[in-house]
Amino acid sequence: MFWPKLLGVLLIIGGCGCYGLMSANRLHRRVEQLLNMRLALACLEKEINYLRAPLPAALSRAAQGAAEPARSLFAATSQDLQTREGITINEAWRHNLHSLYQQTDLNDQDLELLLVMAPQLGMSGGEEQVKLLTMVQEQLKVQEDRARLEEENGRKLRVYGGFAFGATVVLLLL
């Protein structure tokens, strides 16, 4: 009976520990994804401000230099707009953001922030577009700073907490 019990103990502690690690990684990935999204929006802002490139081209070019999830969001939105099926940027941006959301580590607040810009994106003059994109980048920076703080405070707690929780469960079962 020793070996099966030992295996069970290892599985419980290992499983809980892994869950803690994954949870800690999610915190880290959210910080990275917010940063990537902010940098991609900065790139889009430059395309609009300096080149006055129409959104399908501007999004496509910004996607090339961006990291996930911004790359997929920008590329898919650009592609939708190029189909000329009468789809608006508001619809394309919302649709692709919702589709992508489940695959990211962004939270509801981050999503809401990115959705707010959808109706205004592209649909005003150059100066207003720059103001809009600057505002969203600033708000994303605030979210990013919060996420970084959350990561610093929560990372060790989640990693050690996972293993500690697993050990507690083992002790209770024994």
Binding site: I48, R52, A53, P54, L55, P56, A58, L81, R84, G86, T88, I89, L121, G122, M123, S124, G125, G126, E128, Q129
Partner: peptide, 17 residues
Amino acid sequence: IQRTVASISENSLYAFE
């Protein structure tokens, strides 16, 4: 009207200012 304007401006009014 909004859809037509979005369509003719490639959803980019700033580019056609």
